[in-house]
Computed example of a mutant assay.
Amino acid sequence: MTTTRRSPADLSAAVAGTTREVVRLGVRSGLRVSRTYPTDVADLWSCWTDPARLVRWLGRPEGDRREGAELRLVMGAAAQQPPDADATTGFARLRVVHCDPPHRLTVRWAWEDEEPSLVDLRLRPVDADPERTELVLEHLVLDEPAARGYGAGWEDLLLRLDAAVIGSDPGFADLEAALAPHWQDEATPYPLPEVTGGDGEPATLCTRRWVAASPGAVWECVSSGPALERWYATTAQVDPRVGGTFRCTFDQGAATGEVRRCAAPYELAVSWRWDGTGTASLMTLTLEPQQRDGRPGTLVTWREEGVTGNAVGYAAGLHAHLAGLARAATGLTSRDTRWYADFVLAHSALRGRYADPFAS
């Protein structure tokens, strides 16, 4: 490996190539960082999974790396020393939760004496260009100070991954210290969904979010099948009038219902149930024009009544879907990696608040 001395201007250019975000939800936080690399997906995947390449920028894996297995990731100076089975510091304990080569890797992460968290990595070609790959890394279920610290740390490592891809050393003396200020912006706070009822009775769920779009723009996202497929369901059909049909398919099954109330562009209520079940719930979306900091927008309230089963999991999904609706209404493609992160954060925070009787 060659070492090239790089200037502060080089660092500024490298930092400009990173997108970063800290999201706060209740007492839980998560971070999201992404970069684009000048190589194909398979080569970048190899940098994460080939021990000889991984040790050059992240650390030395010790143990079984198959899905479901547990291993240690020895990092820092310790990674350059001979393996020491008796070591008690300098490594993270990992468990491989999901592995889909060469596109996705999810691991349970526990650094020394920290509470376990979740790291989710996704790789995909950029604009169908096989020689450029977008990497999106999300580290979830952290407290906010840890999220900020991990943000700078992961960005440090991903810049070193840049060097590993092209076969050189990054040449920066202390990347993490230089990057830390970029993670000090105020975290984006989102309200936690409310869960009432339960304890053997159907629950009511409610979540709200302000969206920087008009009620008409939000309404467009909820009142047609093609629009719903951008952020909500795999396939969708909706006839936005009282008595109109509603049908959506998801990874976990299909749901069918009927429009109960429709007042475009301010309210849509649908009674629906999962296929094969006898219990229906009532989903109501209300859209209220509201300005924030002089900016026009819409306060979206999503309410579900008559929910049975795991209300916490259902509420976490509701939160993730509303986040997707907010992105779709502002022109972003939303059925992407973000749903998973939004769901995990919400589920963790809700389990802390509604540990009994809702969690399961």
Rank of each mutant, 00 (worst) to 15 (best):
A13D: 08
G153F: 04
E288H: 14
S281Q: 14
G26V: 07
E131V: 00
S334D: 09
E70W: 11
T301W: 07
A128Y: 00
Y37E: 01
Y150E: 14
D50F: 02
R160P: 00
A173T: 02
P193H: 07
G216R: 12
D43C: 14
D275F: 01
G225Q: 04
R327I: 09
A213G: 10
E62Y: 03
A255T: 05
I166K: 02
P289K: 08
A85Y: 13
W219C: 06
R72S: 15
A147G: 00
T39M: 11
A52I: 01
G297M: 04
E112C: 13
T18Y: 08
L285I: 07
S117R: 14
L25P: 00
R24K: 14
T188R: 09
Y314H: 15
L54H: 02
A203G: 04
L159A: 03
T279M: 09
E21S: 07
W210Q: 12
G278M: 10
V74Y: 08
S223G: 10
A233E: 01
L179Q: 00
A341F: 05
T39R: 05
T333P: 02
T4S: 08
W183D: 03
R241C: 10
A315F: 13
L73I: 15
C262N: 10
R124Y: 00
V218H: 04
D64V: 12
G244F: 10
